[in-house]
Design a binder for these strands. Sequence first.
DNA 1: AGGTATATGTTCCGCGTTTAGACAAAATCA
DNA 2: TGATTTTGTCTAAACGCGGAACATATACCT
Lengths: 405, 405
Amino acid sequence: MRKINPHDFKIARRGTSREINRQIALNLIRAHQPVSRADLARLMNVRRGVASLLVSELLDEGLIFEGAVGEAVGRGRRPTFLYIDSRQRCVVGVDIRASRTYILVTDLMGRQLGTVSSFQTPKDGDLLTQELARRVKQVLASHKDVGACAGVGVAVPGMVDLGAGSVLHAPTLGWHNVNLRDPLTALIGIPVHIENSGKACVLAQLWATRADVVGSGNLVFVSVSDGLGVGVVVNGELLRGKHNTAGEFGHVPLNIDGPRCSCGATGCWEAYVSNLATLSRYFGRELSDSGPKPTATFTIEDLIARARAGDAKAMAAINSSARYLGLGLASIINALDPSRIFIGGEITTAWSLIEPIVRSAVKERVLTEFGGSTEIHVVPAEEHPRLRGAVALVAAPAFAAPMVA
Amino acid sequence: MRKINPHDFKIARRGTSREINRQIALNLIRAHQPVSRADLARLMNVRRGVASLLVSELLDEGLIFEGAVGEAVGRGRRPTFLYIDSRQRCVVGVDIRASRTYILVTDLMGRQLGTVSSFQTPKDGDLLTQELARRVKQVLASHKDVGACAGVGVAVPGMVDLGAGSVLHAPTLGWHNVNLRDPLTALIGIPVHIENSGKACVLAQLWATRADVVGSGNLVFVSVSDGLGVGVVVNGELLRGKHNTAGEFGHVPLNIDGPRCSCGATGCWEAYVSNLATLSRYFGRELSDSGPKPTATFTIEDLIARARAGDAKAMAAINSSARYLGLGLASIINALDPSRIFIGGEITTAWSLIEPIVRSAVKERVLTEFGGSTEIHVVPAEEHPRLRGAVALVAAPAFAAPMVA
DNA sequence: AGGTATATGTTCCGCGTTTAGACAAAATCA
DNA sequence: TGATTTTGTCTAAACGCGGAACATATACCT
């Protein structure tokens, strides 16, 4: 039930049907590989002839390849299996965070090809651009075997202007209107895609191939770190809004009379559950207090360790954050009714401690019974959700549905 | 950039291209009528031959009709103008509210055909069903000239289970799991569509034909009445979520330590800006206080009248609500970044008084500069947004984009 | 070992739809 | 009256789905 915009629509041309079915076939191969032409025909509910033609087109374009002949299940000719061709081409994912910047090389399916490397994030945008370009080229040079690089995806903890390819505002980095894409593209010589890290994270989940992760396409990713990043997917599409700034649930208030948030407003969700907020609570001071930040010496990991070791004050600080996390999640559930919520960030290492608190806080404010049973999944740091999201920025467009009508 | 769901997709069949282009043509006629075949061909950027075939198909189906031959602008053959055929068929819109239930007959374009009739809403679901069916049949009988009725749309102030056609929960009506659709369909003998009133309102705006209202398809409607209804449109599509309960921004908190809300939680936005909240504030009592409700004798309209007459206490109560309204709108802007927000409800009659307060409150909490300049439009009660939304439930599906890929 | 059954993949033709262009009809202007 | 322009229709070609036949390849049965 989508309305056709009478001022911006796409007609079905002679090749549109083919384009649509080609993308469907490509996605089915991606989701079900290894898969044969006959399998495809059954999955798509078309004749084998049509599937065969679609496959030969994808083969010609080099998007898929024919692997070994598979074992037949019963009798009959054995199928030739098809795979997404991610040989000899790779993608670089970059995750810029306040403290460090991480780099990872993957194939087109998002499978990790090397180890995650990192360096301290320079505070200055130009310096970071220089250093990042140097590092990316270095990483690619040391992975000559994986073939040509299709693109570089960059996840940034801030709002991104897609048109300009610049970072509008990244509070934790202290950036305003920093153009990253064009300088990086020029320096590296490979297309660069930038996106907000919350949006990148939810994209990573949307495009994950693990069967248990493939949901109905209504997903939310909440990344709890220094700030609170949120990415939303509706109907299989990233929620961008008019200026690509949608998804900032971190600054929806829990209490407008609450503590001051880094954004200038008061009582934002972020001001209650970010790592900084939790640490501040532990040290018994206001988030906005001046003076040396506790993070430099004492991190959220340390706090979680103390809590696990039996420090009641640490546990209390974390439990408070857990409750506030749940209360905010309830707002997201009430507002968006997603089929699944993912939680990322350091707090996930304490998930076993806090899960009951989070879930009961969700139930406290959720309007419906099924809202309270919304799936909440934790994404551990080892899965590098931001890096995988950055990779998805590059790899996913090739698999996206064609724009029609 | 939508992901194709590998478990639920639609293949392009032989007739899919035609189906797509047919819908586009239909929408263009709807948006630009009167319009000629040649105009359509130009608008769609196709040959006149194709446009002609599409048009003849639409003519055969009776969806459009050929009107008078238009005047030629320059020289050359004069065009035959095409119109959406809404002669001899009508739609009934029903708006169920806590106090009264309203009925309106329109044509397929949503143009009002008669006067709005209403009756007091029976508290009991079965009684309402009986009475409503009787009234609808009566209204249709008195409008024999407008032709056959294509369907009845019903807007309900509560959550709707689309599959069952029932109202899951309507707090102001005190309903739980009341099946409306099937009994009404059986009694009236015409297809009945039910939807939440906030969602219906935003649909009315999405499908409005006034050129200045046709936006980018990222819309929010906030209906301020006894409760707070919100409907959201993203990319030209209603935001439903997994259980069709998305959009409940009314129960996102402004302050979790705030007054108790009718939903059971505390400090919901609704508990600050609903008419009941404003009245309670005026009378200096808690929203949750027991005792006789003030609404029965003294309404929000009375309060606004007193404010306009110079009652400082009334003005203060309204101003408070205005500020809270703006603070909540800021959350919606931060969360969804819509291109346009519509405000409905009795409070709109005081818009000239409160607009500056609302807008400054929005700016107070909005994260970006352009967020603060998000368009906010008032929809006066005379436009009957809920009734027009109810009508859109019936009329819009015929114009919706086909599901593809 | 040979025949039969079954599954895969290819090929061919029918038909619907877009694409391109020609043509008739209708109206204006010189 | 004839040239020009615009509208609307018509025909042929290209493209892609729909359906079925055919060749290939493997397993099972006798």
